[in-house]
Amino acid sequence: MTALGLSRIGHAFFGRIVLSGVSLAVRPGEVMALVGPSGCGKSTLVHIAAGLIEPREGRVTRDYRRHAMVFQEPRLLPWLTAEGNIAFALRLARWPRAGRDPRVAEAARLAELGPEDLAKFPVELSGGMRQRVAIARALAPAPDFLFFDEPFTALDVALKRRMQDLVIAAAAAARFAALFITHDLMEAARVAHRIAVLDSRGRGLAGLRDVPGVPGARSDREVFATVQDWLGRDPAFAHVHDVDERRRA
């Protein structure tokens, strides 16, 4: 059973090959983390999976009702209040008008947004609050698949943890499947069921590993031990921390 299937995906920008032969299958209800060094094409891959970019080769199969996405930046509409931004996703999903208000309230509750925050415009909110609104917007139309494109990279460590907990809780409650892009192995080891490592030059996968335990039930010690184990013994993770900002896309 596959919610999202990528088979032999390849893509190039202006003749420069960024991805080739990447195959991946995300099961229903499963959070899969996708890691890889900077510039290896993670972001391009998730944009292809979400249908924002047409791949040059390969096939994407989607077996779910509806997807939503959380981007690296909040990408809120500045002319709508937080409430309006959350309702925007419902409008695009053609959610029945009468059911929108309770659904916005439910999504705001999941993202731990208070009623006083909902009336504010994005310019009046802090960076963390904006990303919360972006998460609430993604959860609002009750998607059964979510794309996360390095959603918490710009947040500080404490805020990042709270957001990860929020995603773990929401995934457990709403049972959505997700493809979670990150370059932070600790983050991947906290939120995901499985972790896929993209080859450092985008040539297929370097490895696919089960993360021991269940998201939300892992202690910090276990998470740390898992990451140390990957970095120390697993050749798939050898190049994850390589940095080449010139190739950054």
């Binding site: 944009h47 979400a50 249908g51 924002l52 509806r66 997807h67 939503a68 996405m69 981007f71 930046e73 990408r75 509409l77 925007f88 996703a89 695009l92 999903a93 917007r137 139309p141 794309f147």
Partner: peptide, 10 residues
């Protein structure tokens, strides 16, 4: 970016 966001939401 906002265009891509709207497209991702259908």
């Amino acid at each position: 970016g906002l265009d891509a966001m709207a497209e991702a939401f259908g």
